[in-house]
């Protein structure tokens, strides 16, 4: 009996305080599908930081990979009367009814990091150009190979094939590598399903089948620990300049990649400019509120970071901003 009363009291309290919240500042609702990778954590942190910088209030909600819950959470935002919504959706399809709901309420919505499957309704998408960034990264690796004057056998770690980003990165890799067919031969495509253990097993197996692989691209930096483990077991993990060094490239720009760049083991990684994207997102909302015309898709061209530009670019690299747990 007692606890029911307590809950009721708690409910009244929350209602009371939420009603009293002053609504002078612009209120942004931030809905994230998940916080299960560092990238998402860095993104939401950056968004919140940008809000504070621009003197905006925000509400945040994380749906734990549940599309229904995300829909509920956005509906809650709408009934709380937010002025704009930034959403990192579960997937390209489930975001569509969410967009509809926001449109009906007349609240601007920005879709972060994923392209909705249907080109309908009013929204703005912000995506990194996975294809172009990957292509740039792989071209940098290819140039390294060509200048060394040796021939290389190459391996790529592929992400989950149900994920557009993974598919675009694979496509970018394949298109870039074709330009270097004179020096690089692709011998192993390792599917990882974004799973560390599968990545470790896959790289080990590929090295077993082709011990002379000298060129590895990982579709995400977070798989690097697995790659390193496999390379170490095969006695192939050496810094740049060593004769046994393998040309390594990645994508994301996380803390691990930053550390590897610093220690000279990683040649290059493609970075999504998280800070730029977050800024873009908030600016888009402000723009819509001020009735400025806006593009449907805003693209983050990203950048690549390598040994030569490490110093100047690391301030834009989100992974460098995180204190890697050591």
């Amino acid at each position: 009996m007692g606890y029911k009363g307590l809950i009721a009291l708690l409910g009244i309290f929350t209602l009371f305080f939420s009603c009293r919240q002053p609504k002078e500042k612009t209120l942004i609702g931030i809905s994230f599908e998940t916080l299960q990778t560092e990238y998402w954590v860095a993104s939401i942190d950056a968004l919140k930081a940008s809000c504070e910088e621009n003197e905006l209030d925000y509400l945040e909600a994380v749906a734990n990979s549940d599309a229904n819950r995300q829909f509920e959470q956005v509906n809650n935002f709408i009934s709380r009367g937010v002025d704009g919504i930034v959403i990192a959706p579960k997937d390209a399809h489930t975001v569509i009814p969410i967009i509809k709901a926001a449109n009906r309420a007349g609240i601007p919505i920005v879709v972060y990091n994923r392209l909705p499957a249907l080109n309908k309704g009013t929204y703005t998408t912000i995506v990194a150009d996975n294809y172009e960034i990957t292509k740039k990264t792989v071209r940098y690796m290819g140039d390294l190979a060509r200048t060394s004057g040796k021939k290389y056998k190459a391996m790529i770690l592929i992400g989950d094939l149900g994920d557009t980003n993974a598919v675009m990165r694979r496509k970018g890799f394949n298109d870039a590598i074709r330009e270097y067919s004179d020096v690089i031969e692709l011998v192993a495509e390792v599917p990882t399903e974004w799973n560390q253990e599968k990545a470790l097993a896959g790289v080990t197996n590929a090295l077993q089948a082709n011990p002379d692989i000298g060129f590895i691209f990982s579709s995400s930096d977070f798989l690097f620990p697995s790659v390193i483990s496999a390379l170490k077991n095969a006695d192939k993990y050496y810094p740049i300049g060593h004769e046994k060094h393998i040309i390594l490239g990645g994508f994301d720009g996380d803390a691990m990649a930053y550390k590897m760049l610093k220690s000279g083991h990683l040649d290059v990684t493609g970075v999504q400019n998280v800070y730029y994207e977050c800024d873009l997102a908030l600016r888009a909302i402000m723009g819509i509120l001020e009735d400025k015309p806006l593009d449907r898709i805003l693209i983050d061209p990203g950048f690549i970071i390598h040994q030569q530009n490490l110093e100047q670019m690391s301030t834009y690299m989100w992974g460098a901003g995180l204190n890697s747990t050591e």
């Binding site: 299960q36 560390q196 620990p225 390193i228 691990m256």
Partner: peptide
Amino acid sequence: QLGAISPTFGLQ
């Protein structure tokens, strides 16, 4: 064997 634990470790 892995050398690191990512937040998706053990999923599925």
